[in-house]
Write a protein that binds this DNA or RNA. Structure first.
Lengths: 143, 143
DNA sequence: TTCCTTGCAAAACTTTTGCATTAAA
DNA sequence: TTTAATGCAAAAGTTTTGCAAGGAA
């Protein structure tokens, strides 16, 4: 096993606490999924989560992975992104931030905090209230 | 038929010209789809295009609608948007512009031109070149 | 004829759901 | 023992594709 993926007992405790403080009962599967997600700040599809679990020799059903990702997103532990038409991504960084989107591969890269500032923003449509502002800077790899 | 949807001979000519200047052979189906799309600036799903055609008594197969929308988008006549996780939208306004996204309904509203300005933008990731910047202002209807 | 386009049905995906089984409090 | 979570398979939704048929040049 890759040393980078070793999970210590302390890590497990921290993961369980994280789930519980968000009102999520830390079952085995949920904890394994959380370990993969929160190992670092990253953007993952459900499929990638299943693959990463597989690399650690853990099998969780597709239904449970989807249910868990949606549960985590609903509890504010994850942010669901709609940036790429062909894949739904889950962002383990829930702080408000923006993204570079690489055309073709669909890869996402975080824009560093504070690197985008607005000089001007529009009034909201009547009868609406703000939820958030998301900037996607679309780029392509230089050939 | 709704007078707003009447297509004059002059309109048809304009549509045919539009397609041809973009290297698209203006077949009957493609022209009918273009008439619906370019009647106004709007954001439509493939399904909505089929419904609008149906209101005018025109039936085009789902496969052809998808193929045509992708063809138009590839030729720069339409812009495919990835803003809402549950539906792919096509924007008949290809000018660079930003959107309000209404949570729940998925409705999109254009941000008026010039209403967003940046005071600061980040350097691009090494080895990449810019494609565009898209801002989505997520809002919800006030209850 | 020859080339393109269309439409249908089927396939390919992604995501959700129903339900029986299992695990946990 | 009672509730909640899991996994499987099936369903549902969207988009793409293979292929036969149709239409235009």
């Amino acid at each position: 096993m890759d040393a980078a993926n070793v999970t210590t007992r302390a890590d497990r405790k921290r993961i369980a606490d994280l789930l519980e403080t968000h009102g999520i009962h830390p079952t085995a599967q949920r904890s394994r999924i959380a370990e993969v997600l929160f190992a670092r700040e990253q953007h993952l599809t459900a499929e990638q989560v299943i693959l990463l679990l597989g690399k650690d020799g853990i099998r969780v059903s597709k239904a449970t992975v989807y249910n868990t990702l949606n549960l985590f997103a609903g509890k504010g532990l994850l942010k669901a992104l709609s940036i790429d038409r062909e894949r739904s991504m889950f962002d383990s960084n829930t702080q408000p931030h923006h993204h570079f989107h690489i055309e073709g591969t669909g890869e996402l890269i975080d824009v560093p905090p504070g690197a985008i500032e607005f000089a001007r923003l529009p009034a909201l449509p009547p009868g609406t209230e703000p939820v958030g502002v998301e900037v996607v800077i679309r780029v392509r790899r230089r050939s």
